[in-house]
Design a protein around this nucleic acid. Structure first.
Length: 99
DNA sequence: CTGCTGACGGTTC
DNA sequence: GGAACCGCCAGCA
């Protein structure tokens, strides 16, 4: 477990309900400005072992990067938290959390 | 240990 | 405005 991974997990857990963050933002805050991709890897791997709110993480366009059922699951979870959607994939950019 | 993959993002055509 | 390319490096077989 690298410090980067830990930081990423912390940040994700720290995202307030009803807000979302982009991979790039998280990576940058975790101390790795170019580690957006690693964030996605961490999400995938760690959400199985830990109970992570992975659904609060989206790409920079403000869209959900998944498709099919994953997309619907994420959408449901976000809407349940009060996040508004502009369309089936895109999240309202005002819901993006920045500290 | 080695190599491949990828829930991304910035830059360059 | 949009497609293509490249760098980044943590997991996993």
């Amino acid at each position: 477990m690298t410090p980067f991974t830990e930081a990423v997990l912390q940040i994700i857990l720290d995202i307030p309900k009803g807000k979302v963050m982009t991979y790039g933002q998280i990576a940058h805050m975790a101390g790795n400005p170019n580690g957006a991709r690693q964030v996605s890897r961490i999400l995938h791997a760690m959400s199985k072992k830990y109970n992570l709110p992975w659904h609060r993480v989206i790409n920079k366009k403000g869209e959900i990067s998944l498709s099919g059922e994953g997309l619907e699951t994420q959408k449901q979870l976000l809407e349940r938290g009060g996040v508004k959607f502009l369309n089936s994939k895109k999240v309202d950019l005002q819901n993006i959390y920045h500290s």
